[in-house]
């Protein structure tokens, strides 16, 4: 493991009752990098993110900037700069876009209104669509706009490490492209990213390193370019299997 790892996951297992959904997975995410976890449906990717976030109990050790997260609650992890954009977005559907964004800064409320205001301006700058829709209820947004709002709300918490679960899920190809360019832009702004994707090709293109998870086990890892060239990965995840 590199010394400068922002997040270190060591031998983490997650059980649902008697079934182990994630089995002794270890991975690291470096500061300022985009790391991706790919794998088929049901491989345990979402479960792994939920465990890192503290939404599910897990065994093993999860360290963030050298500090163990195992005894911390979800909210304490958020306050330390670890923010998750979940697969289901989990927006506040019956509240306005502006309310959703404001609540994204809840963990940062002690930094004062001015700081929140500044972050809000940045988010609106990055997502001009959200500024247009700020008085609209989150539940009435389109799929792409919802994903933007979910990203915007996460950014309001000023994350150091942003975890994205299937950000391209259910979006039109054009919107997927936009979302991925935003992800690259965030890395340039200094946010480290842990990306879980089924769209393996896109994920490996934007990321620095990749991990392949299958039925709860980590089966491969390495620089993204190498993974993309790996024939097994190409066959299974890049849709070149039968050719």
């Amino acid at each position: 493991m590199t010394v400068d790892a922002l997040l270190e996951v060591r031998d983490v297992s997650v059980r649902y009752g008697k079934v182990e959904a994630v089995h002794r997975v270890s991975l690291a995410a470096g500061e300022g990098r985009i790391v991706t976890v790919i794998g088929p449906n049901g491989a345990g990717k979402t479960t792994l993110l939920a465990a890192i976030m503290g939404l599910l109990p897990s065994h093993g050790d999860i360290r963030y900037r050298g500090e163990s997260l195992m005894t911390l609650s979800v909210e304490e992890r958020v306050a330390r700069g670890l923010v998750l954009v979940p697969e289901k977005r989990e927006l506040f559907a019956s509240m306005t876009v502006a309310d959703n964004l404001e609540l994204g800064a809840f963990a940062r409320r002690r930094d004062g209104d001015a700081a929140t205001r500044r972050t809000l301006d940045e988010v609106y700058h990055r997502f001009p669509r959200l500024l247009e829709r700020r008085a609209q209820l989150a539940g009435t947004l389109s799929g792409g706009e919802r994903q933007m709002l979910a990203l915007g709300r996460a950014l309001m918490g000023r994350p150091k490490l942003l975890m994205l679960d299937e950000p391209s899920l259910g979006l039109a190809p054009l919107v997927v492209r936009e979302i991925f360019s935003i992800i690259v832009g965030l890395r340039q702004a200094g946010v480290s990213i842990l990306l879980v994707e089924q769209n393996a090709r896109a994920a490996l293109q934007v990321s620095d390193e990749g991990f392949v998870l299958e039925t709860g086990d980590l089966v491969l890892s390495g620089p993204s370019a190498e993974l993309a060239a790996n024939p097994r990965v190409a066959a299974t995840y890049l849709g070149q299997g039968a050719q």
Binding site: V176, L238, G239
Partner: peptide, 15 residues
């Protein structure tokens, strides 16, 4: 289906 370009674009994804 595998040869169909529209399917490849939509299903297999690409940036």
């Amino acid at each position: 289906i595998q040869r169909n370009p529209a399917v490849r674009e939509a299903y297999l994804g690409g940036v």
